[in-house]
Nucleic acid binder design. Sequence first.
RNA 1: GUCUUAGUAGCUCAAUUGGAUAGAGCGUUAGCCUCCGGAGCUAAAGGUUGCAGGUUCAAAUCCUGUCUGAGACACCA
Length: 562
Amino acid sequence: MKILQDMLVKCLSSLGYFIDFVNVVKSNRPDLCDYQFDGAFKLAKMLHENPVVIGNNIVAKFKEIDDKNLVSDVVCVGGFVNFTLSDGFINYLLNEMICKPKFNVVMPKKERIVIDYGGANVAKPLHVGHLRPAIVGESIKRILRFMNQDVISDVHLGDYGLQIGQVIYGLKKESVLVDDIDISVLDMIYPKMSSLCKSDEYVKLQCADITKKLQDGDEEYQRYFKKILEVSIKDIKSNYDYLSVDFDLWYKESDAYKYIPMLTVLLNSQNLLTISDGALVVDVSNDNDKTDIPPFIYQKSNKAYLYGTTDLATILQRKRDFNPDKILYVADARQSLHFTQVFRVSKMIDELKNIDLEFLGLGTINGSDGKPYKTRSGNTPKLKELFKDCKELFKLNREENLSISDSDLDILANSIIKFADLQNNREKEYVFDMQKFSLVVGKTGPYILYTYLRVNKILINNERCIDKLSENIYNNQDRDLRMKLLELDSVMSYTFLNRLPSIMANYLYELCVLLNTFYEKNHINNLEDEKMKEDWILLLSLTNDVIKTLLDLLVIKIPSKM
RNA sequence: GUCUUAGUAGCUCAAUUGGAUAGAGCGUUAGCCUCCGGAGCUAAAGGUUGCAGGUUCAAAUCCUGUCUGAGACACCA
């Protein structure tokens, strides 16, 4: 609501009222007004005056300068300044949305941003835990691009950590030849080795040793490693393809290794490395810390490197390759301390200190019991099985679902799971209840898709023959829908600034609710009034364009029918 | 133990970051297809925002204390 805001700023300054930021927000009392300003209270405190008097002054002045009739009414109620928009102004704004690109959303300053998400590790099967980093990351990437940012996405595969040593150890122990490695073998080996290492300290040391030797270039281990990489990446790609998640870069942890010597030089030139208990560390503690931040471990006492080192080397790599303004990390919130350490070291290094580093933490996905999600059989379900289950449950739901094509079923299963995830605040954990999700009633992906498709049917049958709305608004459902469309601008900037797809997802749902209400109350096909019909076709066309765009930003495709 | 984070309707979550009467979905109850897709729509019931203080015109939101859950806390990722 930029125009209204500018007008209010003008109004306030001509009254001699100064306030640090003027914010006109959507009213939470739609019975009273459309937009609300509560600055009169702040002014009252500053000036030691009655807020009602100040509010009334603002109202009088606003009426005086509102030569374009932006508002049909502006009143002061108990200190709140309440604006009701005029039909003309509403339609003016909607027409701007129709004819300008990207619905006339105000764009932020363009920056070059690397976004790191997905969290896949080589040789570990993708499971339900990888769902959020992939979906939320992909959605944030798309939102950044919509907001005109220069974005590079990188999957940053974990391929050089201890897990690879574990898998190689397991393959050798089971006498699997390099040529016989396939995805089913890998899927079987990792969980086995992971639990073995937890119970057997000796095996763990062996695995650590293999990891170290691999990092040092051991030929035999490198052969295993290359094959594992090939098999595993193929599988990871097919999983991400299914989710419509894609990356510009498929860099791996190991690709950052060649930057470690340079990184060491940089750290040494600033005397940042110290030895502690045989390991090379960087002290990242700070006097203002409420609790001790442990030192960042640069190199283990056995000379092997940890993921913190490769993360840091990756920042250097990105700096030199792309010179980004920002790097965003979408990862499990439990890694918060790790990123705090990495970021602090990065800020100490002269070459890297100007890069903004943002950690976007994700809450865990829990089952109905409040604990991390498991299948009925008790193990962590693999991603593909999860979608298969979802499709099966969805088919049982309705007889008609049996006739839906398999590709549309995939789209619907994607919409169910993605919308269920993205409507939640990414920082909070949430309960994943497949039974509930596949029932598909209420606030779900298919609800949005259904709304889109039924309205789209009208648009197919009625050609859009004007490109500008008239001055009219015809009834309450009509006005509610138009007002909701006007919120898009502020929703997008809030979503962008906070990197919260959930804000946009909830807006999309609310928009669909109003669209459905409109649809039930107004039967366009039966209309006699041609002008009304033309306006409404255009309005519905705009609404569906918005829905389609937001669905894409939520990584949800539209099925041909459902 | 220290730090972080959460606690809102029976259940799962909102609340544009201090604004007016705390909103949705599920579930429950009662309605709505001669009509563009009923996976829909219209209503109703359901709340001392964990508890106790405090700050101010105004608190779910900020501060203090307290209870409960979750998580993190140097050679795993």
